[in-house]
Design a protein around this nucleic acid. Structure first.
Length: 244
DNA sequence: AGTGGGGCTCTCTTCAAGAT
DNA sequence: ATCTTGAAGAGAGCCCCACT
């Protein structure tokens, strides 16, 4: 099991990541969290984690300085960096420092799960010199569809659009998608959107804005769908996030 | 600003039959 | 085996209005 630490100066962000991701189901365990570079260094020295998720902007020491500092302490740790901005200068420097990937905020549950997936593959490669586990979807067209959904989830993406994108009949795509993913297309897309919405709400965004950002035209409907998914309304979650 | 009820429309899922 | 097509039922999405 991968031992993970999370570093971010926003406590809500850290708490959100810890609570929302099913770490064990993804072969990982959070062994510690920190809210500054200095605090994180102590933690890394103590825990020697397999995987580190860290923010790029932190008081005192930024994420890249932190990465440089931990290299001698824990050279085998795999690294994921996240930031609210797409800054290619930073990204380039991060990749030079051996960062596995650069995640642009808002960091979502699917993004973390994907990162864990890749970290496990990387771990296995290091252990076995080659190999790696199979992708969740074996069918190439479905993998292409998943990438399309990830890119366009905040737009009106019908099954027709996706099927057309991968050059497949919509009806057959629906069947194939369920066979490959174990969940129907619409349920997958809805869950994907709701996970992102949850993250945005915990970060304090307005329900109306979140609804729009995840591709819903009506926040009335968004609210209903959200409640169906999590048994809590978006505004209730927001309030909960503020008080905890 | 946000939620709930009700009703309507449209999309998705599923299945069977058939083509490649 | 893989994929397409068409049809029917189920469910998702949207809209209006009322209410907090």
């Amino acid at each position: 099991m991968l031992r993970v630490i999370i570093v971010d100066d926003e406590p809500l962000m850290v708490e959100g990541m810890v609570q929302m991701v099913d770490w064990e189901a993804n072969g990982a365990k959070v062994v510690g969290t920190a809210h500054s570079g200095g605090e994180a260094l102590v933690l890394v020295e103590k825990e020697k984690p397999d995987l580190i998720f860290t923010d790029i902007e932190m008081p005192g020491m930024d994420g890249l300085d932190f990465l440089e500092a931990i290299k001698p302490i824990s050279p085998d740790s795999l690294l994921f960096l996240f930031s609210a901005h797409t800054d290619f200068h930073y990204a380039k420097r991060a990749l030079k420092l051996g960062v596995l990937d650069y995640l642009v905020k808002p960091v979502t549950v699917p993004m973390i799960e994907d990162a864990l997936d890749r970290a496990l593959v990387q771990e296995r490669k290091l252990e076995q010199k080659g190999g790696g586990r199979p992708e969740k979807a074996n069918h190439q067209a479905i993998r292409k569809a998943l990438a399309f959904i990830a890119e366009r989830y905040n737009h009106d993406i019908t099954i027709e659009h996706v099927a057309e994108h991968i050059g497949m009949n919509a009806s057959y795509f629906s069947t194939l998608f369920k066979k490959e993913m174990g969940v129907s297309y619409i349920k997958y897309v809805t869950k994907y959107r709701m996970e992102i919405a949850k993250q945005l709400l915990l970060m304090g965004e307005k329900v109306m804005d979140v609804s729009e950002k995840v591709g819903y035209q009506s926040y009335r409907h968004f609210s209903e769908t959200f409640k169906k998914q999590y048994q809590i309304t978006p505004s209730e979650l927001k309030t909960k996030g503020r008080t905890e």
